[in-house]
Design a protein around this nucleic acid. Sequence first.
DNA 1: AGCACGCCGACT
DNA 2: GTCGGCGTGCTC
Length: 662
Amino acid sequence: MKIIKVALDVPLATLFDYRHDAATELDVGCRVVVPFGKKRLVGVIMETADSSSVTSGRLKTAFDVLRDSPRLEESDLELLRFASHYYHYPLGAAVMGSLPPQLRRPRPPPSSRKNARGAAPAAELPTASSAPTLTPEQERALSTVLADPNRFQSHLVLGVTGSGKTEIYLQAIAAVLAAGRQALLLVPEISLTPQLETLVRARFPGMRVVALHSALSEHERTVNWLAAQSGHARVVLGTRLAVFAPMPRLGIIIIDEEHDASFKQTDRFRYSARDIAVVRASRVGVPVVLGSATPSLESYFNAVNGRYRLSTLTQRIGAPLPSIECVDTRGERLEDGLSARLRQALDEYVARGEQSLVFINRRGYAPVLMCHSCGWISGCHRCSAKLVLHLGERRLRCHHCGHAAAIPQACADCGNPQLAPMGQGTQRVEGALSQRYGKSGVLRIDRDSVRPRDAWNVMRRRIHGGEAKILVGTQILAKGHDFPNLNLVGVLNADSLLYSADFRAPERLLALLTQVSGRAGRGGTQGKVLIQTEFPEHSLYDALKRQDYRAFAELLLAERREAAFPPFTHQALLRAEAPRLQTALEFLRGAIVAARDIANLVTLYDPVPAAMPRRAGRERAQLLVQCESRSRLQQFLGEWCRKLEGRSSSARWIIDVDPLEL
DNA sequence: AGCACGCCGACT
DNA sequence: GTCGGCGTGCTC
């Protein structure tokens, strides 16, 4: 009797045994349809065996082994095993979650198989663009990366914005392709891939380049994933989910903007695609390149302590670095959030016909609606968050759970009809600027304005066509776009991130402001950046003005060492949620008791409500666990998990290893 | 996660 | 007398 051990998409830390008499070693990695409860599920065969510890009366027989897609290789399964183990997430859920959705279901539509191995469509063969000559700095970085293409090595490319990191990626990829291998290029978000995708396709005509991200249609995603697995796709360009794409001839992994928090998944399987990429590269034995102007302190620390090789790019190509200036807003009465200094600068640039960007990290009209006579504010009843005023659609909206409500005519508590919008959002700033400079010259770009599929392209045309004089936008504008005629950047309300209790707030703010500042002056002239702040003397702004990431990073590292924070210790969170906060906290207190005799040199902190204690009607609490040794922490988490799984509780819980949000 | 079983309250 | 609440337990 032959037994197959199957990974199924259920939240249980176990494989399921099935009888399958014809099973051989060659079935490992294959998808299989099995009976589960009263349903038929697709799973992946992880192992075969001659016997099972499940009593034969309870053993069921597998239905079909699916041959419509190639099997996963042992190295693919091994990476998933590692990730499941490291993040304490059920193997079955991790394995099935790595497949494109169509392959998780019993019968993928036939069309997905028909085209799976088709030739590259004509659109993928644009005119070739040739590689520009590298600067000496770029040359050095590239030859460092390519020094030993058949050995694992992590590289950190620390390059100021506009220093040509992308060109290094492209030439490194070119070398890998020339050796007949595949390249994996990971980027933070989908919104900036169209430009990059075009660039990559143009550079490698005749090579199949595929994208992998969640905005693709299911069919496209299946086709592209299969192309990666077959080796036909030579370049895979994707978001974090692409880190698990099977690539039999993988020759290099590149992570652009490696500091970006979106590489960490924040629900279910809480993996870091950046960290998984490093592990994957080490197992395959190929280089991995992390690139950023403002690396995560974890990566920077790895570079200065020699685990990663560091390449720095200090020169901007084509234009000098922008001049950055703080505008002290203490004691100034701002007009619609704009200081006199910024208004004057905008006048000047508009008059000269140059583009400006006003950056404000708040969408909507105003972050909150308030009653001045009794102090009532618009709060979400399902979340501990404020309802944001969206004037255009005449609604109050919660940015965390999606709840929307009509704008009240009067204060619900005291009847005062004079409710006041407090603070600035993109819509309000857009309105104010439209009054000053005319409606057609002001273009707002945030998640609300670019949602429709090609709205972004329409806007890009307006931006590049020069019709828009002033862009108002959120982070979405900060990332990776080139605006050749944009020479002034104004940042409103820069400090808001500094008030956050998160110890990573300064690191994040520097990254964000560096990225935003980098939008200024890419067309040859020097850009100007005006940052409105109430703390102009803060060392962060000092570092930003001098474009000195390393000085600030050293400062932060010293603080982290002092406070015993990452990267000097390793952390995990036990997160719990329940309808009542008390239930979640009780679960966590019980977890501390359960940890008592296994927490060897592991520090457990008191359970506390989460940063946002209420979300979508559920109360959330968390418990921080910290340890100097990663392996000791791992061992503890494993044992702890097993104990916690054994108990029943009305709280839902999950372990978050290397959490980014505390 | 689903989906059963299971024992106590208000409906045709 | 049944429909249905969600507590507890299982899925090879």
